[in-house]
Design a protein around this nucleic acid. Sequence first.
DNA 1: AACTACTTCAACCGCACGTAC
DNA 2: CGTACGTGCGGTTGAAGTAGT
Length: 553
Amino acid sequence: MSCTTATADSDDGMHSSIHNESPAPDSISNGCRSRGKRSVLKKGPWTSTEDGILIDYVKKHGEGNWNAVQKHTSLARCGKSCRLRWANHLRPNLKKGAFSQEEEQLIVEMHAKMGNKWAQMAEHLPGRTDNEIKNYWNTRIKRRQRAGLPLYPPEIYVDDLHWSEEYTKSNIIRVDRRRRHQDFLQLGNSKDNVLFDDLNFAASLLPAASDLSDLVACNMLGTGASSSRYESYMPPILPSPKQIWESGSRFPMCSSNIKHEFQSPEHFQNTAVQKNLRSCSISPCDVDHHPYENQHSSHMMMVPDSHTVTYGMHPTSKPLFGAVKLELPSFQYSETSAFDQWKTTPSPPHSDLLDSVDAYIQSPPPSQVEESDCFSSCDTGLLDMLLHEAKIKTSAKHSLLMSSPQKSFSSTTCTTNVTQNVPRGSENLIKSGEYEDSQKYLGRSEITSPSQLSAGGFSSAFAGNVVKTEELDQVWEPKRVDITRPDVLLASSWLDQGCYGIVSDTSSMSDALALLGGDDVGNSYVTVGSSSGQAPRGVGSYGWTNMPPVWSL
DNA sequence: AACTACTTCAACCGCACGTAC
DNA sequence: CGTACGTGCGGTTGAAGTAGT
């Protein structure tokens, strides 16, 4: 790009002074092996002279044998550097400039299918390099992450995920140990984020589902529901009964309401789920390191069936909504330490919330319950917090959209204060054309009908009680549901039985809240799930003991 | 105009695979 | 079979550019 060209003209640009010219004491130290002829290899930006030399070399000798370049030319660059320069900048037919809409769409689609397979993606984008695509994607991720938008447009979900399974089977995927480890550490940029973000979105509207999102996502990966790269080695995951049981310590504000909903740890001992849990080496949360990590953990209010809720959120595994967590560093922890953390690490309850809705927080609703109240109140605190956070999230998202003069949306009557501040990052969002996604996103939060809920999920419905809607955004009408997928089936089943019960009755927020945090949670927990699904039930309509056997898949 | 914050992207790095010896 | 080498891939870094204040 121009950067290189600019510095190239001035021969040794700034980079050189920093990056190099510095003698590499060991030629391997900079990632290049040298046979000693020229142990000092230049690094940093390429100059036009160097470009010319390399071009000449390739013209004469062709591509490949890059380490021979420094032998046959005066170029003091390692083979890797030469190859990179050639591939990314010098080779003919390179397409420069911004990605076209078609290209962008293709990238998104391919990423949904392949994950971070930049090289493979580049093969489908003539003239584009893997580096270019990678950069584009990372930029896009950051942008959308800031804006709290889904990584993938709503059109990309079931088919893509289904495709990914075939992709897994039909493509040679090198599952070497190293790469698997890396993948583990960065689970993020892949389409697997569909799941994580999906769940994060759920969490954004229903904090109770927040942490469970990790668990469910992991489990979905483990069951092969969507993962192409991880399914072969990622064990199914659920919070261990012990974790769940002991997790009351993490929610002091609601433990009295929640904890009793669980049976004793022994209750789980003989289940297949439990066996799977034991094999899990992944910590669902890690609260100490990264601000985003708290996003997973800080709202850890484990309504007993919240994982089911989470499943019900997006039975189609429709791509992510809400802030994107790109990494799951907790995967790095050993089983023991992970579980220990799970059990003992206190979580700052609202940090993520504050981060994600800063615009709203800057002008907090005067009538809102103080946050501290949420956490000091034991009995009502959970409900207040749920409501409060749902409002906040919804308001923040709406403020993002409503504040834009470019487009209007008609269907929202927001009951909470809506700031007119455009959150940081939304300008770029609008500029970059992702504003439309925002609208879709918004439409999602307005779903109120059961049929839409089947795609939109409980969180939307819950938000729908806060944000009363008049119109429906057809964008979110479920298009395809892969009924062969266990998670879909599970979610659908759950939705049939419980979710609608809450959501169809959108006229009363108190009803929903009662279902959420009130007696229904406890009462329904003992109700054995039936397939009839006629009787409306609350969030807790499934108990742990009633879980469909998806976990053992 | 100056400063700050944020974004972009070229290049580097480490690792793994395939192959030759 | 083990080692060295060439190559490719994906993640990360940091300077340059840009936008906002």
